[in-house]
Amino acid sequence: MLKSEIKRLVRRHTEIGILVISLCLVLLFTLTSEGRWANAYNIGTILQVTATLGLMTLGVALVIGTGEIDISVGSTFGIGALIYLWFAVRIDPVFAALLAIGAGALIGAFNGILVTRTKTPSLIITLGSLMIFRGLAIALTDGFSFSVPYKERDGFSYSVLGGTEFLGINTGFYWLVAGLAVLLIALKMTPWGNRLLAVGGSAASAHSRGVRVERIKLSAFIVCGVLAAFAGTLEASKLGFADGSMGRLMELQAIAACVLGGCVLAGGRISLPGAVLGAFVLSSVQSYLVVTGVRPQWFIFLLGLIVVFAALGDRTLRRWSLKN
């Protein structure tokens, strides 16, 4: 009876798999790291990394939900960070953040319009924009960096935008929680959310029922760009530093987090809490390898291996839940 209830729960909630994996990893990391992993400071660091990666992941999950993909988010993150920090020393950081977010929306619109108007696969378009905006980030900085000295980063605006901690947790994490809540409401309780998943499930079917497929896809790309640029803003505010390399390879981590979190790459089924948990798992694994002193030569290899095992574990759990 209990077994069948658990199976039903796993089938209905795609994020159950990643939740179980997260709990297992937290337990494993706690027991095997002699207190180096499970302490307030480190958890705070992991949550800060989860905040920026998680915000980016939420956007990618929405695009995946429509059956498309956005691999340009790492570059959008970098552009957001650079625009924010360049303006933050000239105008109030809140307005600088709005400009960065505006730039993210434009990049998202650029991707979305090209994908929907030209019918070119989103992988190709966003691969191009990944390079375009990374190149632009390097060109804008002339290969160098922007930074704001530590003593000039003590204002309220910097603090609220990820520049400091509240209750021991970087303020960026609260933005992630807020972003998750807003998007969950939008996805579950508004027509836009229903249409987004309908488009990913079957664009033709959704179109036949009057859903404006192109507009929904475009909106997902714009939200994705906004979230990636905002994540870059939070990271730049925390570091007080931004260069052309900011966000490099984060696009792959965001996609991995989505997959770990139960998002189906073909579209139609996503889990936003699962995607955030996926980001948490990736940040936790990375942190565990560091605190246990893994040599740099093995770092990427082990991280990849753990991601593969975590994904296989999730798949096994799902198969088990589908068995009678």
Binding site: N42, F241, S245, M246, P296, F299
Partner: peptide, 25 residues
């Protein structure tokens, strides 16, 4: 002694590594 390093000259990653090392006290 432990040697931890970034492999891609990223300040963003370097600071993250540093914070995680500080957490290990």
């Amino acid at each position: 002694t432990e040697y931890i390093s970034t492999n891609n000259y990223s300040v963003q990653e370097h600071v993250r590594l540093l914070e995680q090392v500080i957490a290990t006290k």
